[in-house]
Amino acid sequence: MLPDDKWLWLFEWFEMTGPGVVVRESVWMFPVLEAVHLLGLCLLGGVVLLVDLRILGLTLTQRSVSELAGQVRPWLAGAIVVLLVTGVLLFLSEAVKCFYNQSFWVKMIALPTALLFTFAVRERVAAKLDVEVTFAARSIAVASMALWFTVAAAGRWIGFS
């Protein structure tokens, strides 16, 4: 599932960009960015699970889904911003390695899917849900958890391959 080698020049160029060079040549910057990326993952995991588990009726069932989702939405957006900024910097520093990495491409497919699904589907549905939850909403919660799980697992696996 690797892209054609004709795109390699683009990834070589990514590595030569200013931020890519700075992160690669520093001893501590990559590890620190990784750590902040992980903190973003913690926050994202927490707020995604909070709403999805609530939709499934597994936590805070006395609260309406729309209230909870609305309350944590700024934190969801904040976590995604932190993850994108640190993620892009990590990528730029080793773009060619990523180009030849299966897990990276799995993540690059799962990530836009998860983002689109979260903001175009899940957040819209959650905003309309009160205390009672429909079967369709439950399926959406399961899909949301599965998508973000794939993004995170593929991301972790980039480092192993």
Binding site: L38, L41, C42, L43, L44, G45, G46, V47, V48, L49, L50, L60, R63, E67, L68, Q71, V72, P74, W75, W148, F149, A152, A153, R156
Partner: peptide, 27 residues
Amino acid sequence: HVMLLGLFVGTAFVTDLRLLGWSMKRV
């Protein structure tokens, strides 16, 4: 171990944010 961070630290963070008064003040 990393994936469980989302469940453990993530839900702990949510409670912390509530204790700090930064989120879910009506819960």
